[in-house]
Every structure is written in structure tokens, then in C-alpha cells.
Design a binder for these strands. Structure first.
Length: 258
DNA sequence: ATGGCTTGAGTGTCAAGA
């Protein structure tokens, strides 16, 4: 079973890339972020024709998250329970007995800004929710755009980014808080080449110069981490015409249904 | 240089992303 996450930066623009990538990657579950659309225009029919069930938690213009799966989606839940937030950033569902949590974590804009304070509050709320979810669903994966580069090796220029947004110590502490719940960073379960990133700025030839950050992640609870046999970032879609600025991350889980 | 692209909204130009 392959599970994946991809910030598509508008599903309207990127649907052809998504359909192509679903076929090429043989992913069984794909979490999407920044669909930037309302539920009523979500392309359920096109995805069903490609063999995928789907759930969407969307809004106009900003945010929006979806889970696509070859298996049925059960116990679908939107948002973070008990955390009032008009921004559509979280969607969870159970697929083949495994809890899939799709998250588009806040960007934070600038350290010290109002949006940064919101980001830190939001991360605390999600961690509290996950602590409870893990009791009910021991097999849980948290996939998404975290908007956090966990370590300096996840940053093309750590000196320039030091204490900046996406790299600040409180954000990194929040990421380590997820690990403290027992979750493992699937990418770091394996030896990886250096300078692997999941996002590159559209400007200044960011992708060609590999000036990137690793901010999209798949975290796995212990029973899933034990079965994980690979985790890679697929740069191929970033090379297409009109790409998303993010690349998909995909993890292979070795045991279990389908 | 609070720049440099891209998207959505909406038709002139701004907010937001990371």
C-alpha cells in the first residue's frame, strides 16, 4: 500500500497532473492540500473514473484539503474537533482500517506576526487531537504540508533561513512534539541523499538551482513505521508545465490489506 | 528593494503563499 501527500496549489489547475501522477505512481491513498475550491465543484466524477473514492473539506480561494483512496473512506471527519477555525485545513478518514489524517498546516507568514501566533496555536490544537486519535486508531498516518523544515539539513541555505518562518525553533519544537506522540518521520527512516526538498520557490529559478525546503511530510505511528519499506519525494511533477511549487511525497507500507 | 512567480478574485490590481 502506497500513501502520499501533495500540495497542488489549486486542484482546478493541477487536476491533469494529479490524474497522471495517480496512474504513474500507483499510489493507493493521496492527500491533497490547497485545493482552493468549494466542495460543490470538487472533481468527484473525474477521480471516480480514475478509480478513486474521495472526500473534500474545501473553501473558496484559500486552503482546502482532500483524501483520495482506492479503498472506501470511513469515519470521515473535518477540521480539528473543539478548535474553532474557519480555515479548511484538516480532513481525516479511515481506509482499510488505517487512520489517514491530511493536514495543511498554517504558513505563519513571519515570525512574531499574528499569523505566526495562529500557526503555533493551531499546531498545539492538532497535537492534542492526534493524542486522542492515536488511542482509537493505533495505525495512523499524518500526511501533509507542515510548513515546517524540521532540521537544517532540510533547508538549502540554513544560515539564510535561521530563525525565519518555517525554520524557527518554536515551529521545529512543534514538529518534535508530533514525534513525541510516537510518530516517525517516514523519510528519515531510510538513508537519503543530501539536499532533498519538497518545495521550491517559483521565483529566481528556485527549482533549477535546487533552492528548496523539505516541508511536506508523512509521519507514521509505530505499527505503520514498522511496515514502511520506502519513502521518497518525486520531483518529476515539478518539472512539468505549470507545476505546483510542491512535489509529492510517497511512502510504501509493506504489510496489510491491498 | 518587504522585491523576484503563481493563483484566485475579477477586469485593475491586490492578498497570500513559503
Amino acid at each position: 500500500m502506497k500513501i502520499a501527500t501533495w500540495n497542488v496549489n489549486s486542484l482546478k489547475v493541477r487536476l491533469p497532473h494529479v490524474l497522471d501522477w495517480l496512474a504513474a505512481s500507483q499510489a493507493d491513498v493521496l492527500c491533497l492540500q490547497e485545493t482552493k475550491m468549494e466542495d460543490k465543484v470538487f472533481p468527484y466524477a473525474e477521480l471516480e473514473a480514475a478509480g478513486f473514492h474521495a472526500a473534500h473539506n474545501g473553501q473558496k480561494t484559500y486552503n482546502g484539503v482532500a483524501i483520495l483512496a482506492r479503498g472506501k473512506l470511513e469515519d470521515v471527519r473535518c477540521d480539528i474537533p473543539g478548535f474553532a477555525d474557519p480555515q479548511k485545513r484538516v480532513l481525516a478518514a479511515t481506509v482499510d482500517g488505517r487512520r489517514i489524517v491530511c493536514a495543511y498546516m498554517p504558513n505563519g507568514q513571519a515570525v512574531g506576526s499574528d499569523k505566526y501566533e495562529y500557526k503555533l496555536r493551531w499546531l498545539t490544537a492538532l497535537a492534542g487531537c492526534l493524542r486522542e486519535d492515536l488511542q482509537r486508531w493505533p495505525e495512523l498516518a499524518l500526511l501533509g504540508d507542515y510548513n515546517i523544515a524540521p532540521e537544517d539539513r532540510d533547508v538549502h541555505d540554513p544560515a539564510a533561513w535561521k530563525d525565519q518562518i518555517l525554520c524557527s525553533e518554536p515551529e521545529r519544537a512543534a514538529f518534535r512534539g508530533f514525534l513525541g506522540l510516537g510518530l516517525a518521520d517516514a523519510f528519515r527512516l531510510f538513508e537519503q541523499p543530501p539536499k532533498i526538498y519538497s518545495w521550491w520557490d517559483y521565483r529566481q529559478m528556485g527549482f533549477r538551482l535546487n533552492r528548496g525546503l523539505r516541508i511536506d511530510h508523512i509521519l507514521l505511528s509505530p505499527p505503520l513505521a514498522e511496515t514502511c519499506s520506502a519513502c521518497v519525494i518525486d520531483k518529476a511533477p515539478r518539472k512539468l508545465e505549470r507545476p505546483s511549487d510542491h512535489a509529492p511525497v510517497i511512502a510504501t507500507l509493506g504489510v496489510g490489506p491491498a
